[in-house]
Design a protein around this nucleic acid. Structure first.
Lengths: 66, 66
DNA sequence: TCGTTTTGTCAAGTATATTTTACATATTTC
DNA sequence: GAAATATGTAAAATATACTTGACAAAACGA
């Protein structure tokens, strides 16, 4: 399912997908795919995304109803 | 680096690596490698591990000094 | 001390995360 | 209306997560 928390956190920083991708050293498509959902990124990438957006893993990637 | 928080949480539940692996539907070697460190599991596996051990992502996979 | 369980590790294979290139669409700005 | 920016998506290639099978050593109880 879509990761709307990530999309919102990125919007709050006013980053484009490409800017966030550069900060995390991955491609824009990878960020797009993660936001779109039905994707399974590695924990290191998730951590890099969290650091770039000043969030924690629980805030962006933990879903109670999962 | 080693994931000692994971090792401790598994010990607290008195699970062997193999028992935890079965709960997460992965091989024992995968759990061993994650505890040993220098490994980069997927977020879905991390979430499965957290659920099996009644922990959250931040508790097992978030390191402030990282 | 013996048998069992647990863990570490390695090598070869398979599944899949991620990249690269590319094209299409929507939005904004001049 | 044209140019620039942001996003969605797809196919082929590459990197790497994960499996399987196997062996050895440590730990632990009977």
């Amino acid at each position: 399912m879509k990761n709307l928390k990530l999309k919102a956190a990125r919007a709050a920083k006013d980053y484009s997908q490409e800017q966030l991708a550069d900060l995390c050293n991955v491609s824009r498509q990878t960020i797009s795919a993660i936001e779109k959902g039905d994707y399974n990124p590695t924990i290191n990438l998730c951590i890099a995304i969290c650091k770039a957006l000043d969030k924690t893993l629980d805030e962006l990637f933990w879903d109670e109803n999962q």
